Amino acid sequence: MNQEKLFEYIQQSKADIFERWLVTMNDIETGRIKSVVSEQVYVNVSSNFVNVVLSNAFRSLNEFSNELEDIVEKVVKLGWPLGYLTQGLRELGHVVVEGYLNEGSSNKEAHSEIFYHFDKWLSPVYNKIVEQYSSSWENTVMLQKVALQELSAPLIPVFDKITVMPLVGTIDTERARKIMENLLQGVVKHRSEVVLIDITGVPVVDTMVAHHIIQAAEAVRLVGAKCLLVGIRPEIAQTIVNLGINLNELITKNSLKKGIEFALEMTNRQIIDMESGE
């Protein structure tokens, strides 16, 4: 019976509980969150979170697991910390308890029993939130990693039979593997005869990076295409010479523009300037 009274209080006081919860959360986990989202977004997400928990008080966790999962996934996508949910759940429990105590509708013994059951119900909800947040976060990170890998080694067709792979940033073994994979797949897919690897955005070319590039060029040759290395800046050229790296098997150009012009010649084409009006 006492449990039913607490549930009745929660359902009748949702709006008041939420307003008091917002106040308690202001100095806890909301500073960084509010700096990147609007007040309206914060209030809407918070309202959904609190409403899902309060509306399902004392129900089996399985009955509203999907609703809880949707809230957690939204929080992860927004980049909010786990502490917003865990601390938020704790503070929600405190607000409910304090509010019910202020009602003064039961004796101390009855209160203790009610709060014991309420806390016992909150514990698996807390654990479920942590579990779902971790799972959703790992999935998000994995998807981002895949997307970044795809973006880190794109193969772009610029002319018929000519494709360009612009590289930006450092090249490690994992990325080198992706470069090789994308090159070979792209050459076949686009029926390329000439592939330009543009290293303008690669800050350092050491022996390992050069080795990976040479391997990629050799792999391209084996599938019937030719490879040009373009974007070799003066400092990169000096480094290559100082390290004694042999790029004799590679055609090199100092800019993408010159590389494309040479690639057109290799495919029996050229760029012709045409005066206006002729």
Results as ranks from 00 to 15, higher is better:
G88Y: 02
L68G: 01
T86N: 01
E69W: 03
Y84N: 05
Q87T: 01
I71C: 03
N62Q: 11
V72M: 07
N66I: 09
V76F: 10
Y84W: 07
E63F: 13
K74L: 10
L68N: 09
L82F: 12
F64M: 08
G88F: 14
L82K: 13
D70I: 15
L85P: 01
E67H: 15
V75K: 06
L82Y: 12
E91V: 11
L78D: 06
E73L: 12
K77W: 10
Q87D: 07
L85S: 05
K77D: 15
E63V: 11
F64N: 05
S65D: 08
R90V: 00
L78M: 04
E91K: 03
V75S: 12
G88E: 04
I71G: 06
Q87S: 05
Q87I: 00
D70K: 13
L89C: 00
L61A: 07
G83V: 03
N66M: 00
G79R: 11
V75G: 11
L85T: 01
E63M: 10
P81E: 03
K77N: 15
L61Y: 09
N62P: 03
K77R: 07
S65Y: 14
W80L: 00
E73N: 12
L89A: 00
L82R: 11
Q87F: 10
R90L: 01
L68W: 08
I71M: 04
L61G: 02
N66K: 15
L68M: 13
G79V: 02
L78A: 07
F64Q: 11
N66F: 01
E73H: 13
K77Q: 10
N62S: 10
D70A: 14
G88N: 07
Y84T: 02
L68I: 07
L82H: 01
N66H: 14
L78Y: 14
G88K: 00
T86D: 00
Y84A: 06
F64G: 08
E63S: 15
G88T: 06
E67L: 12
W80H: 01
L78G: 01
W80I: 07
R90W: 03
S65M: 12
E91Y: 01
E73I: 12
L61K: 04
W80F: 11
V75E: 02
I71K: 00
E63P: 04
S65C: 08
G83Q: 09
G83M: 09
G79Q: 13
G88P: 10
E63A: 02
K77C: 06
L61P: 04
V72Q: 09
D70F: 15
P81L: 07
L68E: 05
N62F: 08
T86H: 06
R90A: 03
I71F: 05
L85K: 01
Y84H: 04
L89K: 01
E67Y: 15
G79C: 09
E91F: 07
K74T: 09
N66V: 13
E91G: 00
V72Y: 14
E91D: 00
N62G: 15
L61Q: 04
Y84S: 03
